[in-house]
Structures are given as structure tokens and as C-alpha cells.
């Protein structure tokens, strides 16, 4: 059995000291070990950004693609090999700006992939421009007068898009985050985990202290029921989205692969490529 150490590799992350992404990396490594994976059975697919580098910092199969497209790549990998555990990950710009179309559709498609967003409310890699998660009034290099746009509410958005697993966490809560990633991996269908992962270099507003002050743990709300979509929406609205924990899970809706007619039970990658003559003749006959 692999331990979290087996998911470590020899590459030294180029993140700034104190960057929230370190804990996300550690949480993925622990969760992977806790659910009993071997490194070769995990594929981490990431986008572009500081956060996108994460696939290179985990000892597993890793694919660092193009900006905003980690989700379609991840879904392709999962379709090819349903026995693999596939994690997609990237920043809030990656997932909620350039990749937003894919995020919404991955949610409603419900392919069995776990998507972890490292949400720092800013563009880190490109050195500090506004992100769709930046609050109105937030001053950045590209919004010197303060952002005049409305921030995206990814959790509410996921709920309305028909998500079957929606969770949020804070990167210092390593234990909770690890547990949520495990739950996401075990969930049959698409799981979205938004992680507040502070950028210590460019975001001087949404700092560790800021989050500590403003976040509410769902576990502290008495009787909170993550199977109730309406309640989930209410709690998000009440707290302006600043809650952590499992917000919503629907265990009844089957995943895309389970619903897909004809889709091979064994991984597609093991399918016989050669078509037998009889099958070919049947196909050809339709054109005669």
C-alpha cells in the first residue's frame, strides 16, 4: 500500500514561500494514499497558472495542458480509462474565466472526475491582474481604480448547473481538505472542490488572516444537511459564499459513464482495435 510519501516526487515547487498551493499539493498526496491508490493509477491534469504547476509536483501521471482546458483533457483521460482516478486542477482564472465554459459543462455532464480549484482571487502567474473571483472594488494592475465587475459565485453556479458534489475548503485546513478530496474521489460523478488558496505575493486583501476571520465552517452550523440543495443555496447566499466543508452531494444521480449506453465496462484502452470481418461487413452493408 502506498503512503502519501509515495506521491511525493523530487521536484521542488517554484511557488513563493507561503503560497496556499503547497497545502493543496499535500492534501492531494494524502487523499490519494488514504483512498488506497498507487501512484500509477492517479492522473493529475492541470491548467496554466502558478497553481497549474501542481501536476508536476505529485508523483503520479501528470498532464500540464493549456490555459483553461484541464477539464476537457481530464474527461478525455477518464473516458479512455475508467479505472484511473482523474483529478483536474488549476487556478480561479483557469477554471472560472478562460475555462468557465468547460467548468459548467463538466458539472452538468457529470463525468467521474474530481476538480480542485486553487482560488486566490487573482492572477498569480501573470503577476497580479484581476480574476473573475476578485471582489468588486479590488485593486489590481488591470483594475487600478478597483474592479467594477461582479465576482463569480462558483458554488452557487455549480448548484444551479446540476452539480452532484460541491465542496469548499481553505488551504490551511489540511485535514478537512484531505477528507473532502477523498470524498470527491469516492464520489461517483463530477466533484468540484473550491479551495481558498491565498496568493501571498499579489493579493494583500484576501490573506490567510482575512479568510480566518470571514470563513464559516459548515460543521459549525447545527443540523446542516449537505443532501439538501435548497438549504445549500441558502447557506451560500447567507454567508456570501464564504463557507467551508461539503456543501452539497447528490448520491443518487448516476455518473455520465454509468448512463452512457454501450460504454465498455472494462477500460476502453483495453479494447480490441482490430475489427473482425463480420462486423465490418455489417457496417459496409448499410451503404449498399
Amino acid at each position: 500500500m502506498a503512503t502519501f510519501k509515495d506521491f511525493r516526487n523530487s521536484v521542488k515547487p517554484n511557488w513563493c514561500p507561503g503560497c496556499g498551493d503547497f497545502s493543496v499539493q499535500a492534501a492531494i498526496q494524502r487523499a490519494a494514499a488514504n483512498v488506497g491508490l498507487e501512484p500509477e493509477n492517479l492522473a493529475v491534469i492541470s491548467g496554466i497558472g502558478c497553481s497549474g504547476r501542481i501536476s508536476g509536483y505529485i508523483n503520479s501521471y501528470g498532464f500540464h495542458g493549456i490555459h483553461g482546458r484541464s477539464l476537457p483533457i481530464a474527461q478525455g483521460v477518464k473516458m479512455a480509462n475508467r479505472d484511473l482516478t482523474v483529478i483536474a486542477s488549476g487556478g480561479d482564472g483557469d477554471g472560472f474565466a478562460i475555462g468557465m465554459g468547460h467548468t459548467i459543462h463538466a458539472i452538468r455532464r457529470n463525468v467521474d472526475v474530481t476538480y480542485i480549484v486553487m482560488d486566490n482571487q487573482i492572477y498569480g502567474l501573470t503577476k497580479g491582474q484581476t480574476s473573475p473571483r476578485s471582489a468588486t472594488g479590488f485593486k489590481t494592475k488591470s483594475t487600478p481604480e478597483g474592479s467594477i465587475e461582479q465576482a463569480i459565485a462558483p458554488m452557487e453556479m455549480a448548484l444551479t448547473a446540476g452539480a452532484t458534489f460541491v465542496a469548499q475548503s481553505f488551504s490551511t485546513d489540511l485535514k478537512d481538505l484531505t477528507a473532502l478530496i477523498e470524498a470527491g474521489i469516492n464520489h461517483k460523478g463530477f466533484s468540484l472542490i473550491n479551495v481558498f488558496s491565498p496568493c501571498v505575493t499579489y493579493n494583500k486583501v484576501n490573506t490567510y488572516d482575512w479568510f480566518k476571520e470571514n470563513l464559516t465552517k459548515l460543521s459549525d452550523i447545527e443540523g446542516y444537511d449537505p443532501n439538501n440543495r435548497e438549504e445549500a443555496m441558502q447557506v451560500l447566499m447567507k454567508h456570501d459564499g464564504l463557507v467551508t466543508g461539503l456543501i452539497y452531494q447528490n448520491t443518487e444521480r448516476p455518473s455520465y459513464q454509468e448512463l452512457l449506453k454501450g460504454y465498455s465496462e472494462k477500460p476502453l484502452v483495453d479494447a480490441e482495435l482490430k475489427l473482425d470481418q463480420e462486423h465490418f461487413d455489417k457496417l459496409a452493408a448499410e451503404f449498399m
Partner: peptide
């Protein structure tokens, strides 16, 4: 494709289509 165990996904756009195909090829299909 379904009678052969395979599948077709109509994606949200062409960028998703090509990157999904890249993912599947990387996955070995």
C-alpha cells in the same frame, strides 16, 4: 461506436472537443 464499447461526446465547443481527444489519446485510446 457504442456497439464496440466506445463513445462519442458532443462537447461544449471545439476547444473542448480537441482537448478531450488529446486526453483520450494520452489515456491510450
Amino acid at each position: 461506436l457504442p456497439p464496440l464499447g466506445g463513445a462519442v461526446i458532443q462537447t461544449e465547443d471545439e476547444i473542448a472537443a480537441v482537448t478531450m481527444a488529446i486526453g483520450a489519446n494520452y489515456g491510450g485510446v
